[in-house]
Nucleic acid binder design. Structure first.
Length: 260
DNA sequence: AGTATGACCTGATGGC
DNA sequence: TGCCATCAGGTCATAC
């Protein structure tokens, strides 16, 4: 479900309410999200900082790091009662935070240092320089869509925003990354920043599951130009948006505006 | 290094 | 109403 803009929206809300708070209690229900390793109770630990690391919500406590990945259907919600999809609950000075995850593709990682799985990710799309983006992209010879989806290339993009980005950059999803010109990649870098900033501004995209910590939907789905618009006219040229399967992911693009 | 495929989970939707 | 297939904001692991 959530990609960079959705996680950023969640993290901003968490930061406001959790900064400096103390964990009163923590409860974990057995589920796949822990991958066999349940975090310790954490009673008395306090929150130093909450930030986003790619698609991970990272809660830095004085004793270590709680990293939460929401997978496809994960939600972090304030003040909701426990239900059959509740995987964890934390009480922060009387404020209840619940992790719900229907499909259990999400993950909760506890580590005293920054978890290795996070350290191995590529640079943040909002922090990478244009030069580095161009250099890195040209050092691979895979298709541009699969490269942008690889969290080791840049951390935080997912299926929606990659499709939207490639449309804005007028690049076909299967175009080889190595053979994109410097000009094309620089343009893509600019569009990437603009897209993500607009999406954060809109509170992310809600297609089916995504809601913020207050249970509210995002609004950026209204601005999608190709994602979920198969068969509808391209907003630039009018030809029908095409949907194909690439790397088992639904891929939306305009066959006229996005040439190989 | 790349790509292709299936696995992991549960629910919603559409066709018959 | 029921059954079946397909699809879904994401990784992983394995095999060529």
């Amino acid at each position: 479900m959530p990609e960079l803009p959705e996680v950023e929206t969640i993290v901003r809300a968490l930061a406001v309410r959790l900064q400096g708070a103390t964990v009163t209690s923590a409860k974990y229900w057995p589920s796949r999200v822990f991958r066999g390793v349940t975090p310790p109770p954490l009673d008395g630990a306090f929150v130093k900082e909450v930030r986003r690391h790619g698609k991970f919500v990272l809660i830095e406590l004085n004793r270590g790091y709680l990293a939460i990945h929401l997978g496809m259907t994960g939600k972090l919600l304030f003040d909701v009662p426990q239900n059959k999809y509740t995987r964890a609950q934390w009480l922060f000075d009387g404020l209840l935070l619940s992790l719900e995850d229907i499909r259990q593709f999400g993950r909760v990682i506890w580590s005293e240092g920054l978890p290795e799985g996070l350290r191995l990710l590529g640079p943040d799309p909002l922090e990478i320089s244009s030069r580095e983006f161009v250099t890195r992209a040209r050092s691979h010879r895979t298709g541009i869509k699969s490269l942008l989806l690889a969290q080791t290339f840049v951390r935080g993009l997912g299926n929606i925003y990659v499709d939207e980005l490639l449309f804005r950059a007028s690049v076909h999803p299967t175009h080889s990354s190595a053979s994109l010109s410097q000009k094309q990649l620089t343009h893509m870098w600019q569009e990437m920043r603009a897209l993500l900033e607009e999406a954060i501004e809109g509170g992310g995209s809600s297609i089916s599951d995504y809601v913020d910590t207050a249970g509210r939907q995002g609004t950026f789905q209204r601005e999608h130009r190709v994602y979920g618009r198969a068969g509808e006219p391209c907003l630039a040229c009018g030809s029908p948006i095409q949907k194909i399967t690439l790397a088992q992911r639904g891929t939306h693009f305009c066959p006229v505006c996005q040439k190989v």
